[in-house]
């Protein structure tokens, strides 16, 4: 490891704020890219499930 202690790692010789902000934003973009498709998938699954339940209920009512 290049940095001697946690303090120099955080401050990075005065550039800490820039570096850590950039990495924070990078993490944000990556997490967003993973969460959006997962949420989309959950929504589609819920839609399909709801419709299938409704169809089954209609079928049972008809019988």
């Amino acid at each position: 490891m290049y940095f001697e202690d946690l303090n120099t790692l955080i401050t990075m010789g005065g550039h800490g704020l820039y570096v850590w902000t950039a990495y924070g934003l990078g993490l944000l973009v990556m997490v967003w890219n993973v969460l959006v498709p997962l949420r989309h998938r959950r929504r589609v699954a819920a839609d399909v499930g709801r419709r299938m339940r409704r169809e089954r209920a209609q079928q049972e009512a008809a019988e």
């Binding site: 490891m1 940095f3 550039h15």
Partner: peptide, 15 residues
């Protein structure tokens, strides 16, 4: 964490 800083830009180059 493990690379040395750039001799011109210091640590900001880690971006």
């Amino acid at each position: 964490l493990f690379t040395p800083p750039d001799y011109l830009q210091g640590n900001s180059y880690r971006i």
